[in-house]
């Protein structure tokens, strides 16, 4: 039964004494108001550096790293981040997120919605941004352990799905029933860039042990490993993955936007099966 106390509680809703901040606060960006108008910024600094100086003296990659990490990267960090950005620039026209953007394009969706549509679908937990944080946590937790022990533990505890691909660990598994070739090759290349890339090297050893099971690196695992190597916090991983994949989504979506609707397949009635 609902008690009298309960009814009273909900009839007399009271404000809590929570103290909210008076202002938004940030450690990232500082704007200085112009003398004439307090709403207009006359200068802006990113983690202390004048934006105009960054424009003049830094690359986009360096500025991006600064924005998230608070310091400019060393040469090796900037190089690795740039290589990952190139590798992730396009999930490709078969990826569901790209296809969502293409579908929006061909459907004549407003151009400003095409990228958010693709990015939203890219948020998925299967080969999308939703897998990055858990993959980063997996790598950070295990890369100091003997890779064979981790493998044995996973084979004992992880449960394969009845059908479809198996991600035995976040960022590692099969793609269409076999090893995804390109992320594995790229991971080997990245691991050789610098002797100190312990997470990438551990991931490559782990992928080798997975190979007899038709599994290996996935794109998400590779991205997670590089983000972890560069010191990004796991919670940033999802958004970074979306950011780096965004150009391809937009390019493919826009490519379709000037074509007629008939330029993409519409599944035939005989291939549309309503199951009982």
């Amino acid at each position: 039964m609902v008690s009298i106390m309960s009814v009273n509680k909900h009839q007399q809703v009271k404000k809590r004494d929570e103290v909210f901040s008076d202002k938004i606060s940030t450690r990232i960006w500082e704007e200085t108001a112009s003398d004439e108008n307090p709403y207009i910024a006359s200068s802006a600094r990113c983690h202390g550096y004048e934006i105009t100086d960054l424009v003049e003296k830094c690359s986009f990659i360096e500025t991006l790293y600064l924005l998230f990490r608070g310091e400019l990267p060393g040469k090796e960090e900037a190089f690795l981040l740039e290589k990952l950005m190139i590798f992730l620039i396009n999930p490709g026209p078969r990826h569901p997120a790209t296809r969502a953007a293409m579908n929006a394009g061909i459907g004549k969706t407003n151009p400003e919605h095409i990228l958010p549509i693709g990015l939203t679908i890219l948020g998925g937990a299967h080969l999308g941004a939703g897998e990055i944080e858990s993959s980063m946590r997996f790598l950070r937790k295990n890369f100091k352990k003997p890779v064979g022990n981790v493998m044995d533990m996973l084979l004992k505890e992880a449960v394969a799905p009845e059908e479809g691909d198996w991600h035995i660990a976040p960022g590692f598994g099969s793609r269409y029933g076999s090893i995804d070739v390109m992320p594995g090759e790229m991971a080997n290349g990245f691991a050789e860039l610098d002797a100190d890339r312990k997470i990438l090297k551990w991931g490559c050893e782990f992928a080798q042990l997975l190979a007899p099971h038709q599994m290996g690196w996935l794109m998400t695992g590779l991205a997670a490993a590089v983000f972890a190597e560069l010191g990004f916090q796991p919670r940033y991983g999802a958004g970074l993955f979306q950011l780096l994949s965004a150009p391809g989504l937009l390019a493919h979506g826009m490519e379709q936007s000037n074509k007629p609707m008939t330029a993409m397949p519409f599944v035939k009635d005989e291939d549309y099966v309503i199951e009982e």
Binding site: K23, I24, S25, T26, R27, I28, W29, E30, E31, T32, A33, P38, Y39, I40, A41, R45, H47, G48, Y49, E50, D53, L54, K57, C58, G70
Partner: peptide, 18 residues
């Protein structure tokens, strides 16, 4: 809710030069 520049509290690094 327009914000003036000084409506945002900056708590980061002080100005520095590249």
């Amino acid at each position: 809710l327009p914000l003036r520049c000084d409506d945002v509290l900056y708590e980061g690094k002080t100005a520095r030069v590249l």
